Amino acid sequence: MAGVLIEKQLARHVYSSLEAASCPLVEGLYLQEADSMLQLLCAPSQHRTDILAWICSSISPSFTSSKPMSVRSKEPDVLTKDMAVLGQELLLCRASDVDLIRGDASPRRQLQFLEQLLAFVPGCVKSAGHTADGELLLKEFFGAENLPHLTQTLSPAFDPWPTHIKALWKNTKSSYKPNREENGDIVALLQATQSALEQLQSKCVFLNSEAQSPPAFSPSSLRVAASDLQQLMATFSHVYETDLRVYCSRDPPSFSSETEVFQRVQQLLLACNTELEMLKEVSEASESVSEEVKQLQTQPHYWSRGEKHTLPDQLEKVIGRIGGFLSQLSS
């Protein structure tokens, strides 16, 4: 946090130094916030490069005459290296500190470099010093310890007017006497205004507090509600007599107290479900067995004389061998 505050103070000081040196590249900007000054002085941009080139040309007039600016604008690395060489001659940086010239270094380092460069610009340090002194004076004037004195100055407890002004004011107040005609005109104007306001209030119903209160329950609305209720009751009586009375007059159904039948039905249903599950498992097992048999008959799994053969082929060969063996025994 302290580093950020120091960077903002350095940015303000460098910007005020550029204004004091009458740098044409900051004229008309009117920057007030420290973040905008940091963006201008520390972020890589063509405007920042032009400001550095102006500072270098103000320090060394031969900087602009050493190489044409058109060549430098076409080759920005040449301009960057020339400014780094000038900084080395001034013992402010090394010739290899190209990142400091481009704006890739830390903001604090860039601001310190700019501050040291501006110290070589003629007429810059003195004016910037006056500006810094003014800022210090304002900070001290508006400090927390001086706020009570400032408040007392703005709203003094004693009347600071001179004696002759006080006497003139007292004489003016004592010599002024209201006229009866003026009082009569004022009273008539007030009465006319009050009557206009009363007429306006009578025309605007929503301004009346009595109109905003809910209306009382009138006999006519009660009569309408009673007639609606009578019609509903008559309709219900008609529906009850024609449709609902037959069902309402029936005796309630009698339930048997013997529950063994339901228990037996439940047990039979459970047994049926068990048998169905067993049949399902048997069918699944038969399908798996048939699949295995099919694989044994179709897929070669048995080796004979360096080759795989299926089970039926192997059985045929074994049967043929046994038949040949039996024929040899019989002969």
Rank of each mutant, 00 (worst) to 15 (best):
Q267A: 08
A20V: 06
E292A: 14
V71M: 05
M83A: 06
T131M: 08
L92F: 07
F262Q: 10
N146C: 01
D82W: 02
Y247N: 06
H309I: 11
C248F: 09
L18P: 07
P252A: 09
D104V: 01
Q199V: 05
N171G: 11
L25P: 00
G143C: 11
S127I: 11
Q110K: 06
L329I: 14
L276E: 09
Y247L: 05
G134H: 10
A43R: 08
G323R: 11
H47Q: 14
S65H: 13
K74R: 13
A188I: 07
V26P: 12
E115D: 10
F141C: 07
L41C: 02
A271M: 09
L207C: 10
L296Q: 01
C204Y: 10
L200P: 00
F113D: 00
S62C: 01
F113W: 15
V239K: 06
V187E: 09
S155W: 13
A285H: 13
Q297K: 09
F206T: 11
K294C: 02
S174K: 15
D104A: 09
L111S: 03
E258S: 11
P44M: 01
L79V: 06
Q9C: 00
A20H: 07
A53Q: 12
Q263N: 08
N273A: 14
S227R: 10
Y240Q: 01
L150I: 15
L311D: 01
M37P: 03
E27R: 11
K177D: 01
L29T: 03
S254E: 14
